[in-house]
Simulated assay, not measured.
Amino acid sequence: MSHEPEPIVIDVDTGIDDALALLYACAAPAAEILGVSTVVGNVDLNAATRNTRAVLALAGRGDIPVWPGAASPLSSASADARHVHGESGLGHAVLPEPPEPASRTHAVDAIVAAAHAHAGRLILVATGPLTNVALAVMREPELPSLVKRFVIMGGAYAESGNVTPSAEFNIWHDPEAARIVFRAFGGVGGASMVAVGLDVTRKMTFDEKDVAAFAASAAGKPKGAALTRFIEDASRFYFERMEASQGRRHLVMHDPLAVAVALDPTLVETRRAAVDVETSGRLTTGATIADWRGQWGRLANTEVAVSVDAERARKMFFEAMLRLAEGRSR
């Protein structure tokens, strides 16, 4: 793994776990964050953009540009996930109005420009629906050959879904966009997608004991109080939701894991397959279908994460949070 910071663009629909992923990226020495693009998903575009700016300000990185993108999916309108993330998208957390305005550059323009400016080096990570990335591919068909690595948090490959029995939320929210993206990447000369789906993200969790341990280690640090308050208030809403639905108070670190894998691919083991997205099934819309045996005769386009070093990833996350508490962001 390179010791030089790598240029990265993160595409988010900032709810609770996107916020944690952004905090992680801000504290990761391996990441040179060029900008963050926002998309409708967990919350509407305005809320996602405001949340993103506020979280970056909390991390001491209000200088990072935030590029608003698609306000609606390419597919028929889908429900958001405020029932999981709260009305604001950040659970019970309340952050000050961010001082820096959002950029006037559209997310699609910014993604394409970054890919050209950092051709062969750019890491692109999507932790929300793939609407912005689909529009970027439609704008610039060469995008898959320009990026070094493309990681998504999305899909359910051996696991059941989390919004329907067969579909994971990010793919389900805009299956048309997801299909465009899966079909664009992985061709000859193009980067494959690395799909960090429910198969691995469900294995990376934290609970109230982890939050309490972090609070103790962050006590007295320059930004410890503010960061601890945010993590406690945001995660508490998620804990309450999980307790009501699953009987256990914990938070699944979907999006932080995707960002971690983008910066350190050794955290997961992947299996290569041709993957496509169901867009018209009565019961299966948004399902990610992996052809493990090559029955379609298509070129494999996706590295599907099938196992994860969850303990190492969790340790890396809380070490990053401690760096932020100490005022050490990139």
Rank of each mutant, 00 (worst) to 15 (best):
S103A: 14
T164H: 02
L263D: 07
A81E: 07
L124K: 06
V40Y: 01
D210Q: 03
L283Q: 11
I64H: 10
V211C: 04
E4L: 13
R139D: 15
P65I: 03
N301V: 05
I123D: 04
A27K: 01
Q295M: 15
V259S: 03
W67C: 03
D11R: 02
R249Q: 11
S280C: 08
N51A: 00
I289G: 00
D80G: 10
W292F: 08
I171Y: 04
L130A: 00
R53Y: 05
A195T: 06
T49H: 03
V66K: 01
V252G: 03
P129M: 09
A102I: 01
R50I: 04
E6R: 15
A115W: 04
L143F: 05
V84A: 13
A225E: 15
K223C: 07
A31D: 12
T52F: 05
E140A: 14
E326Y: 10
N51L: 11
A136S: 14
T284H: 09
A31H: 10
W296F: 12
D233W: 00
A167C: 11
T285S: 10
E142G: 07
D255A: 15
G86C: 04
T201V: 14
P144E: 03
P256H: 09
P265L: 12
L74W: 06
R236V: 08
I231N: 08
D174N: 13
E240F: 04
A325S: 14
T14E: 01
A305T: 13
E208G: 07
T127Y: 02
I123F: 08
V304G: 07
P222E: 08
L130Q: 09
G197V: 10
T49S: 04
P99T: 03
Q246D: 09
D210S: 13
T279E: 06
A93M: 13
L198D: 01
E97N: 13
T284P: 01
T164S: 13
E208K: 15
R50N: 05
M253K: 00
S217T: 08
G220I: 06
V12Q: 01
R229G: 04
L58H: 14
K221Q: 14
L146V: 05
T284I: 03
R236Q: 09
T49D: 05
D109H: 15
E87N: 12
A134E: 08
A191N: 09
V306P: 00
R248M: 09
L135V: 03
W67F: 14
A262K: 07
V259Y: 09
H116W: 14
V163D: 06
A21V: 00
L324K: 11
